[in-house]
């Protein structure tokens, strides 16, 4: 078992979830309650990571974060190191790749709140922040948790994008999924097997939680 890879994976997943919690809620509410021109295009762009091969996403992120790119250049000037093949670059890639996993369940949950219930909050004297805290979040939390659990599980299992953007630097970018690949390459089937079993268990657990939560949402609005 590669404990360094495991702790790196858990750290990456936890930070991705932490960033996508506010970002996901904000974008999901905007998409659920807003009506604007080009909404479909925004939704499609956010869903791209679901359909594109990880190598394609990884390629664009590599180009986008590279030293020659504005983002990579700015990063280099601010922190004196490259964004690609670093943990920070990996985290940024992870956030982008996980946008649809976080946002879509949250958006569906917000959309399930009847419009007049939110309006009733406003005419009852609740400010927009109070509507968020006292109506939106209590009613949409199963969808929010689902989005975060999916993000966590998906980050643990991400392989292609990590390999493209991060490589396999121990302690910096070598996650469990990469470590498994390395173990198999090195004919260490026992090590690969132990880590695979761990990922399998974690993923099953995460998916069970999301299915139980969606059943809960279905009951409430059914």
């Amino acid at each position: 078992m590669d404990w360094i890879a495991l702790s790196l994976s858990l750290k990456l997943a936890a930070l991705t979830v932490l960033i996508l919690l506010p970002v996901g809620i904000w974008v999901a509410r905007w998409l659920a309650f807003g009506t604007f021109r080009g909404k479909g295009v925004v939704e499609a762009a956010l869903a791209l990571p679901l359909v594109l091969p990880p190598t394609v996403i990884g390629y664009y992120l590599l180009v986008g974060f590279g030293a020659a790119s504005p983002i990579g250049d700015l990063w280099m000037r601010l922190f004196g190191r490259a964004l690609v093949f670093s943990f920070e670059g990996l985290l940024l890639a992870s956030v982008i790749v996980n946008l649809p996993f976080a946002i879509q369940p949250m958006q569906r949950a917000f959309e399930a709140i009847p419009r007049d219930v939110r309006e009733a909050g406003a005419v009852s004297g609740l400010s927009p922040w109070q509507v968020l805290a006292r109506i939106d979040l209590p009613l949409a939390w199963p969808g929010i948790v689902t989005g975060l659990v999916l993000t966590f599980a998906h980050t643990l299992g991400e392989f292609g994008v990590v390999l493209m953007v991060g490589g396999s630097i121990p302690g910096e970018t070598r996650t469990v999924a990469i470590a498994i690949y390395d173990r198999v390459q090195a004919f260490d089937n026992a090590g690969a097997g132990a880590m695979s079993l761990l990922l399998l268990t974690l993923s099953l657990l995460a998916l069970s939680i999301t299915y139980m939560l969606s059943a809960r949402v279905g009951r409430r609005h059914g």
């Binding site: 007049d116 219930v117 309006e119 009733a120 005419v123 006292r134 109506i135 009613l139």
Partner: peptide
């Protein structure tokens, strides 16, 4: 305001 479907907080 009383809404047509009451719009109570469920």
């Amino acid at each position: 305001m009383v809404f047509q479907s009451y719009a109570l907080f469920p």
